[in-house]
């Protein structure tokens, strides 16, 4: 074979694509009906939350004193009724959804970032550094997180961005522990030893070999962390530490609704349903991902 032909053969063979573990995982995920329906539901809820308010005739902070505590009705355009200030519930739920979902995502992102970095370093280098870093995590674990969040809120003021950071700063501890454990078992693997024997730098071993192989458990954990962050925000809002009026979140709406549920059931039922559906979807997706990424049967 002359050189030209050889290069041509090589070019052809380079176009043949392999089937990566991700492609396999995606195929298995799409075979899981519950996960697919959940994914679909979640996408719809997100799109409606983000774009829905633009198509509704009411604004989330508009008060309509003529229609206080109005039950759901199609004639008035208050499809899900109104609250005690005559504000349209549907538009408030969608606005709350924006906030709850973005807190869920951003706080999770913050905690994953800190947790993965911290966990891989502690797990990979081991020894005294590991002991030191994990003791810090344990001390932080021992602190009641509510007090921690309250202190943050008091010091920095009730700013919505600090709410993101405060929740993220609490949630990263678990992430760091999980990542550390996985890193320790990964670094015993022979392909990591081979890389070390090759003289690969520690930073590149972590970036090229450890983190990509951690991606599976991390993604699964993210889907389980987002709901817990949404619940945490609801809880803080319930205590009055969360977002402030007229801004709202699902947690705030539920806490308000629960006070009025005897007179205006819709104020609790509708925000509650949105939240339950979202959380259930996230959990089903998490389960589906776990089965897809880490299959035991095959």
């Amino acid at each position: 074979m002359n050189k030209q032909e050889n290069i041509k053969a090589i070019e052809i063979s380079k176009t043949l694509k392999g089937r990566s573990l991700w492609v396999d995982a995606r195929r298995r995920l799409f075979l899981n009906k519950a996960a697919v329906i959940s994914l679909f539901t979640l996408i719809i809820i997100s799109i409606v939350s983000v774009f829905g308010p633009f198509f509704l005739q009411y604004n989330f902070s508009d008060t309509d004193w003529g229609s206080i505590y109005q039950p759901p009705s199609f004639e008035t355009g208050h499809y899900l009724g109104t609250d005690g200030n005559g504000r349209d519930l549907l538009v408030r739920i969608l606005h709350g959804g924006r906030l709850s979902l973005s807190i869920g995502l951003i706080a999770t992102f913050v905690s994953v970032f800190i947790g993965v970095l911290y966990g891989t370093i502690a797990g990979f280098f081991g020894g005294k550094l590991d002991i030191f870093m994990m003791r810090i995590v344990e001390i932080l674990y021992a602190m009641p997180y509510l007090i921690f969040v309250i202190i943050l809120m008091v010091v920095f003021g009730r700013n919505i961005y600090f709410l993101f950071i405060a929740i993220g700063a609490v949630e990263w501890l678990t992430m760091a522990r999980i990542v550390r454990g996985q890193t320790i078992s990964l670094k015993e693997k022979e392909f990591i030893e081979t890389s070390k024997a090759l003289g690969q730098s520690n930073t590149l071993i972590i970036v090229k070999h450890i983190i990509p192989n951690l991606a599976g458990p991390i993604i699964v954990y993210i889907t389980l962390m987002v709901p817990s962050v949404i619940i945490l925000e609801s809880f803080l809002s319930f205590l009055g530490l969360g977002v402030q009026e007229p801004l709202t979140s699902w947690g705030v709406l539920i806490s308000e609704g629960s006070r009025e549920m005897e007179t205006a059931w819709w104020l609790l039922i509708f925000p509650g349903s949105f939240m339950v559906i979202t959380l259930a979807s996230l959990n089903f997706i998490g389960d589906g991902l776990r089965d897809a990424i880490d299959p035991k049967e095959y």
Binding site: K14, G18, S20, L21, K189, E190, F191, E193, T194, S195, A197, L198, G199, Q200, K208, H209, P212, N213, A215
Partner: peptide, 29 residues
């Protein structure tokens, strides 16, 4: 020295990073 002394291990699957293609595995060194 590491460039001059290389190792292959027992477990053929364990010694290759499962998330990398064969080409990029051989390319790493």
């Amino acid at each position: 020295f590491r460039k001059k002394v290389q190792i292959i291990f027992q477990d053929p699957y364990g010694s290759l990073d499962p998330r990398m293609t064969i080409g990029s595995i051989i390319k790493e060194p």
